[in-house]
Design a protein around this nucleic acid. Structure first.
Lengths: 191, 191
DNA sequence: GTCTATAATTCGATAGAC
DNA sequence: GTCTATCGAATTATAGAC
């Protein structure tokens, strides 16, 4: 894929910078990822990063554009919501976790206020609506969505970032069943 | 042995440095917390931090000494384990979250390998035994402990670090009931 | 369009006066 | 024991040559 460096036109360079930035920010978080390292990964000069993206903050904003692509709750059997959502995220991480913007945000949100704020926005815009679709009361739906977030972000953290052995080694099917049951209860169970 | 107390005139300064270091590391994580800022918080010169703790890594190790003080599983009714553990952590964070070593580690583990390794050790030494106490099969107990970790670390992250509104605003009692039910199922439910 | 050179900060760490 | 002064390295960011 990256074996033969293509002729360096502007668009190709921009795209390559963004790809390298996503990987670096995901691996190291906002603070520790350096423009120099990103440029080295992209095989270009550090000053080019500045030229195209202005500064480090704007590069981060361009690199982190999270679309969870959560399936529509209306199209899923109500009693399969939990398993479906967990399976959705595990499948998403199966490929290249270092290129997942959600993991990038999760990692950086621990120490960066801007990243934390962005992660809260993702939650409000993309997760909360799922709870609202299965719960008519807005206040109760907000709590349900929050509980789902504690379990899903905790799973992402332990499996993909902390790499806690029993969680990192578990098969996706196993996690879909057990964590899915928790998410299901948070969404549709008695509160 | 660390029990022998050699009284020095500098004990007060050492303690003040450690207190400031804990707060700074907890608030900013290992990378972003600077020795200069810690020294400023402690009201002393930055060089004193180096004199007493050698370097930044050793200062971090001294500041982060996590004892979860989890209650003995043998002394708790088996069906109250989940609620008891969740209540234990929430109570722990009720006071000054910026002085909690677990939150410090959690924040730093997202971007620092040493902190992540230490957090895995904490898990193995202090959380895994609880699962082993209620589950005879070691492999199954490891999985149960791992599932508990996903939920408890996710709760800590969403409530104390990310400060996700519905989770941060929830009363401890509410979280004890709902998150406690999840932890209970992970520990003693059918797998 | 790409790179060289460097400015301006900031950090961890050291040496030495008092 | 405490502080002043500073070093050397690393960082973001800028200016300008080719």
């Amino acid at each position: 894929m990256t074996s033969t460096p293509p002729p360096r036109r502007s668009d190709a360079t921009r795209a390559e910078i963004l790809r390298a930035a996503r990987a670096r920010f995901a691996a190291d978080g906002y603070q520790r990822a350096t423009i120099r390292a990103i440029a080295a990964d992209a095989g270009i000069d550090p000053s080019m990063v500045m030229r195209y993206y202005g500064n480090k903050t704007q590069l981060f904003a361009a690199a982190v554009d999270v679309h969870l692509h959560l399936p529509d709750a209306a199209g899923i059997p109500r009693d399969k919501l939990g398993e479906t959502l967990v399976a959705h995220f595990l499948k998403r991480w199966e490929g290249d976790p270092t290129d997942d913007a959600l993991l990038t945000l999760l990692r950086s949100a621990a120490t960066d206020d801007d990243a934390a704020s962005r992660l809260r926005e993702i939650f409000a815009a993309q997760v909360a609506p799922v709870a609202l679709a299965v719960c008519p009361d807005p206040a109760e739906a907000a709590l349900r969505a929050g509980l789902v977030a504690t379990q899903m972000l905790g799973l992402a953290f332990c499996r993909q970032i902390l790499r806690l052995p029993p969680v990192a080694a578990a098969t996706p099917d196993l996690l879909v069943v057990h964590v899915g049951a928790t998410v299901q209860r948070y969404l549709t169970g008695r509160l």
